[in-house]
Write a protein that binds this DNA or RNA. Structure first.
Length: 429
RNA sequence: GGAGAGGUGGCAGAGUGGCCGAUUGCGUCACCUUGCUAAGGUGAUGUACCGGAAACGGUACCGGGGGUUCGAAUCCCCCCCUCUCCGCCA
């Protein structure tokens, strides 16, 4: 949610922001919101005055004698009818305004590149040399199925497409990367969190996934609950409705959770393998801090570095891209994606997504803090980034570290999590 | 699933129809006093919105939504949440 004042003072910037995100419908919400706001403001002074009159006259009544009382009472009843009509109108306008406001996207920062979709994201930096295999490397699913680590058919039979079963050492590797990610972040001062996976609409709305993301979300209609697509939702919502003290900030959380996505509208896209699946595990970093743009940007770099350090420890080549306007979501002000080299795709594939929101989520979540020394109540700033999402990260791990015989070398960082072994798998090719 | 008790400001906790935007305590801030790891005194201290250059004035908000009433934190209805007891259960 944006500040209504920003909308009034600089509607062009907000409208241009929505257009930069390639969301013309949402840009239209700016004008709708302003029109409703104008109508509301036109009636408010009159409404407030009427209420004031009504209130004062009512108070006086308590002190009046029976005769005068009758006269005032009659007058009051008249006013009441008039007031009720106005209040009905006010209520409607406020509801409409709120609906439009919740559609208006966060304004992308100046450092967000222009562009229509992910093909126009701009590379910021690159790390690691892409390995020359000297032959066609195997895809992760070829290695995984040959090793008996992966089964898509049985998964599809019981759960539908875009599902998988991990077995044996791959299941252990899956757990190892997640555990490594949690340990890394805990060592850097983050607090581990195990959050709810089923949340109310308010949490989806508060983090900006609703309205708009309903089609991507599994919903338990009976209970009015939603399966999270990322632990960003419950973790950012943790302090929703609270008034934090400035010296409690920043809050730095690292959550490991299952994530669920319907992937509606992606039929025929990334159908093979572990890239696009309905259910996965993710370790997510979330920061809640004071309303300071420079600090948000610093955090943004820090959480990117956390993810990059992990990829470097995994010895996986990656690049960081600045996500362009057209590929940016509704609530983000700026986003970096980290893409890891995936030989089977012959390209970098998205494995991480680091976003900063400023106070956009905090306003929706009613997430505030009080400034030190008796200062004002302020909306917090929020950020988040993937540390690791698996099984997607298993794609580059298997493919980049595969050996000729189909076994997979383990980077030293992961060995302690797999009994000290230097590789997994037997010769299969 | 059944029975009961509750949800009030940063926190604790009063308030059962008008004198309540809300006693009081704690916390916080300012000033004063005094000094010896401290204490005491005085005052200020919610959020949002509207009008205003500002001072300030006004309105709304006592879990959420409806209703009764001239008037609701207070009465009625629905929903949500928390706690206790019983049942069931990984």
């Amino acid at each position: 949610m944006l500040d209504l004042k920003l909308l009034r003072e600089n509607p062009d910037a907000v409208r241009a922001g929505a257009m930069k995100k390639r969301m013309p419908d949402r840009a239209a919400a700016v004008d709708k919101a302003l029109a409703i706001d104008a109508e509301l403001r036109a009636m408010l002074p009159k409404l407030d005055a009427m209420r004031s009159e009504q209130k004062n006259a009512g108070k006086e009544m308590g002190k009046l004698g029976p005769a005068e009382r009758e006269a005032v009472l009659a007058k009051q009843k008249e006013r009441k009818v008039e007031l009720q009509a106005l209040e009905e109108k006010e209520k409607q306008l406020r509801a409409d305004l709120d609906a439009q406001m919740s559609l208006i996207p966060n304004v992308p920062d100046a450092d967000v590149p222009e562009g229509k979709d992910d093909t126009e994201n701009v590379e910021v930096r690159r790390w690691g040399a892409v390995r020359d295999f000297g032959c066609q490397p195997k895809a992760h699913y070829e290695i995984g199925e040959a090793q008996g680590w992966l089964d898509f058919n049985r998964a599809a039979a019981m759960a539908g497409s875009r599902n998988y079963v991990l077995f044996g050492d791959l299941a252990l590797l899956h757990d190892a990367v997640l555990r490594y990610a949690v340990d890394l972040l805990v060592a850097r001062g983050f607090t581990a969190v195990d959050p709810p996976l089923l949340v109310r609409d308010a949490a989806m709305y508060g983090t900006g996934f609703f309205p708009g993301g309903e089609e991507q979300t599994y919903r338990c209609e009976k209970d009015g609950l939603n399966l999270i697509g990322t632990s960003e939702v419950p973790v950012t919502s943790l302090h929703g409705g609270e008034m934090l003290a400035e010296d409690q900030l920043p809050k730095k959380y690292v959550a490991r959770s299952a994530c669920f996505r319907r992937e509606a509208g992606t039929y025929g896209k990334d159908t093979r393998g572990l890239y696009r699946v309905h259910q996965f595990q993710k370790v997510e970093q979330v920061i809640v801090d004071v309303a300071d743009k420079a600090r948000s940007i610093q955090h943004h770099h820090d959480i990117c570095k956390n993810a990059e350090d992990m990829l470097q420890a995994f010895e996986l080549p990656y690049r960081v891209v600045a996500v362009c306007g057209g590929d940016l979501g509704v609530p983000q002000a700026m986003k970096y994606d980290i893409e890891t080299w995936m030989p089977s795709r012959g390209n970098y594939g998205e494995t991480h997504s680091a976003s900063r929101f400023y106070d956009y989520q905090a306003r929706r979540l009613d997430l505030r803090y009080r400034q030190k020394d008796g200062g004002k109540a302020m909306w917090c700033h929020t950020l988040n980034n993937t540390v690791v999402a698996s099984p997607r990260i298993l794609i580059p791990l298997l493919e980049n570290h595969q050996q000729k015989d189909g076994s997979v070398r383990l980077p030293p960082a992961l060995r302690p999590y797999l009994g000290g072994r230097e590789s997994i798998g037997k010769p299969v090719f």
